[in-house]
Structure formats: C-alpha cells, structure tokens
Design a protein around this nucleic acid. Sequence first.
DNA 1: TTAGGGTTGAGATTTGGTCTCAATCTTATT
DNA 2: AATAAGATTGAGACCAAATCTCAACCCTAA
Lengths: 153, 153
Amino acid sequence: MVSILLMVKIMKNEVRKFQEFVRRNKLLWSNEREIIAEQVFENHFHFTADELFIQLDQKGKNISRATVYRTLDLLERGKLVGKIQLQSGKHIYEHIFGHQHHDHLICQECGKIIEFHNDKMEKIQKKISRKENFEMQGHCLKIYGICSKCQKK
Amino acid sequence: MVSILLMVKIMKNEVRKFQEFVRRNKLLWSNEREIIAEQVFENHFHFTADELFIQLDQKGKNISRATVYRTLDLLERGKLVGKIQLQSGKHIYEHIFGHQHHDHLICQECGKIIEFHNDKMEKIQKKISRKENFEMQGHCLKIYGICSKCQKK
DNA sequence: TTAGGGTTGAGATTTGGTCTCAATCTTATT
DNA sequence: AATAAGATTGAGACCAAATCTCAACCCTAA
Ligand SMILES: [Zn+2]
Ligand SMILES: [Zn+2]
Ligand SMILES: [Zn+2]
Ligand SMILES: [Zn+2]
C-alpha cells in the first residue's frame, strides 16, 4: 500500500505575483515576505505601515517593523501596492494589482478617502508632459476638502 | 533751527501684505517676522525651511529654527506662500502672492521642478468634487518623471 | 551538504519638525 | 514715559516615522 502526501501551498494570486517579482529580481523568497504580502492583500483599503505591523503583531507573527517597511518598499517597487502621502506627511498604502489607477479626494475633517478616475485628466497630463519634453512616469493628484458628511456637522 | 528726521521704513509690497495679515489676525509684528518675510520674498523659486534658516544664519541673523518654521506656517495661513510636499516627505515653499496657481512636474533624476497651469484640469477637479458632494478646498497635483536634460544623459 | 550571499530583528540613529517655558518684546492704556 | 497683559522668541528637549547597523540566520544553487 502506497500513500502519497502531496503538499500544495495555496497562494493568493497577488502573493504569487509578488513572489514572481522577487524571484525575477534575483531576491530571495522568505517566510516573512509571504506573511506580510498575505496580510497586505487581505486589507481591502488604505493602511499605514504601522497599522500593518500591528495587525501582524496581533496575529502573533513576530516580524520586525524594519522588515515590514522593507517589504512594503519591495511591494511598491513591484507595482503591487501604491504609496500615498497625506498632508500630515504620513504615508498610506493600498493595493494596485488588479485595480484601476485612481486618484483621491481626502476629507480634511475626518480623513475619509474617496477614490475616482478621470480619463480626460490623465490625457491632459500626458499632453502637458509631452509639451515640456518630460518623460512622465507617474503622477499624484489629491483633492483636499470636506466630505458631505462632515459638511452637515 | 529745526531739523526733522523722518524715518520711513521701506517695505516690500509682499512683506507689507504679510504685516497686514498678521495685524488683521490680532497677532504682533516682530522684527523676526519681518526679517524672515524679507528673505522669503527674495527667494524667487522653491526652498525648504532649513535652507531659509541657513540663508538667514549666513546673513548673521540669529533667528531660531522654531521661529522660521512658525513664520512659514503663518505665511502659509496668510496664503502668501505655498507649501509643497515632495515624494521624499520633505516640504518646499514658494511664493504665492502675485503668482498664478500652478502645479508641478518633478524630475526624479535631478529634482528639477517645472511649473504649469491648466484651466481645463482645474475645472474637471471641481466637477468631480461636486459630483461627490465634496467641498473642495484645494488640490495637489505632481507629475513625476524625467526631465528632458536628464533623458539625454 | 555546503558555501555564498541575501534577509532578518532589535535597537540605535536620523530626519524633519514640534513643543516647552522662562525671558523678552509688542501694543494699548494710562 | 511707565505699566500691564499678553504674544513671541530661543535653546534645546522631544516626537514619530522611517532608516540604518550588524551579527545571527535563512535561502538557493551546486
Ligand atoms: Zn469628512
Ligand atoms: Zn486609493
Ligand atoms: Zn532632471
Ligand atoms: Zn511652484
């Protein structure tokens, strides 16, 4: 009688993408990178590096802040997550992979973030860059103001 | 024989505007505020708080960092200077008074900043805000890429 | 199994900026 | 001009976010 144990690691598509990116860049795939990526792709909106660190900590994963920061950098370089700077100077992260590019409306009162995408604006930006002989790589548009809920208060 | 000495302080228009703002807000007009404002309006492009502090220091003005930061905040509140956040997290300042609103192209290679203004884009932003019932107060658009000079390298 | 080299954790360090508070200055009022 | 109330300042302590250090450890290819 023969028993075959087949270990197949179920890996989220996004995590696998990250793994591919890491390998493609001749870096090593570590446990920590996998755990962090998993958590990142469980967060379905914006989060800070420290929030992510605390989430992991609460799950009993002992991963240092440094590694969280380092891995978020890697994820950003791989274009799997985006990094956005708030006016306060703090950074927040969000998925990119599988999501359409978008910009943000940010409420100055409660911090609420509304996402939007506008093709016409994207095109204008490309046009402006061309006119200046500027090789556009990316952009960052944030509209600051007061959200509808906070206006009522 | 009578001799009249008339002391008239020559003050740049921009500095006077700041003085008016300070007085309007029931704050006091100090020597430090005047010296800082003068230096600010001598800078005809973007500068950091620390650069400003060093400029003043090199001129022999003994003004503390704290006061420089505090005064820049005030100038910003008075809408006399604008504060822009770079991707690195650093802030740069620039005149606003007497200048048209504009956005920035920022070279990732050499740091060069090109200013531009596009009315159509401003309008689209207002439209987007209206649609979301968002009371727009301001916005920040930065286009990142490589300037023509750096492309040639 | 091993060697070479990438990765990690703990904590120190850096950075850009803010806060504290006693001394000082500004301004309005006598 | 003197005074009093309150705003401003400077020096340095402090802060949070992020980065760096380096020895111990882990991954991978051979
Ligand atoms: Zn709100
Ligand atoms: Zn978003
Ligand atoms: Zn350049
Ligand atoms: Zn500008």
